[in-house]
């Protein structure tokens, strides 16, 4: 389909000021009831910073929160999250847990992820890690905020993963 479709007569009857007010009112209600996460623009800008990489983009497949139980009588219930990303050649699962000091710990597993180099790009700084022979990795003491994973192939990693794999940014 190319070009502007035919707009039938009458369809383009102008909306008056009152119509526009009502539609703006509906937009405002959606904004109030289901607001965009405030950090989303920062997540987008972070993700755009990786677009110059010659890389495979992973997509978010699943993100689930679960009650991780209490850590003590006077500690609030902690939420843990499990996030799964997938690209053409790699699947990455990450469990995110909040540390008592406000940082987060990421327990990750990539397949086929043996010996991939792991990089967590955040707004302020980048945290480095390494997958073990089973494709598992741990990044601890990670500051909260928008962040994205980049998994780089190494000499020892599976040759099926030829390019770095970049995940979308998530809010840690």
């Amino acid at each position: 389909m190319t070009g502007t479709p035919d707009v039938p007569a009458g369809a383009a009857a102008p909306m008056d000021r009152r119509d526009l007010e009502l539609l703006a009112g509906i937009v405002a209600i959606h904004d109030a009831l289901d607001p965009m996460p405030a950090m989303l623009p920062d997540m987008v800008l972070l993700a755009l910073g990786a677009t110059d990489l010659d890389a495979e983009m992973a997509r978010l497949i699943e993100s689930e929160s679960s009650l991780a139980g209490t850590r003590g009588a006077d500690q609030p219930v902690e939420h843990a999250r499990r996030i799964t990303f997938s690209s053409e050649h790699l699947t990455v699962m990450v469990a995110v847990e909040r540390n008592a000091d406000g940082t987060v710990r990421l327990d990750g597993w990539a397949a086929p992820g043996a010996h991939l180099r792991v990089e967590l790009r955040g707004g302020e700084r980048t945290v480095q890690g390494q997958c073990d022979a089973d494709g598992r990795f741990v990044l601890d003491g990670v500051p909260t905020g928008p962040a994205q994973l980049v998994l780089h192939p190494t000499d020892e990693s599976d040759p099926a993963v030829r390019l770095p794999v970049v995940t979308p940014a998530v809010q840690l």
């Binding site: 996460p37 997509r59 978010l60 993100s63 979308p168 940014a169």
Partner: peptide, 19 residues
Amino acid sequence: LSPAEAEDSVQQAFVALVR
């Protein structure tokens, strides 16, 4: 889309725009 999927989709749309 769920909130998490929506966050991903918005990012992908801008990535597509840049590319």
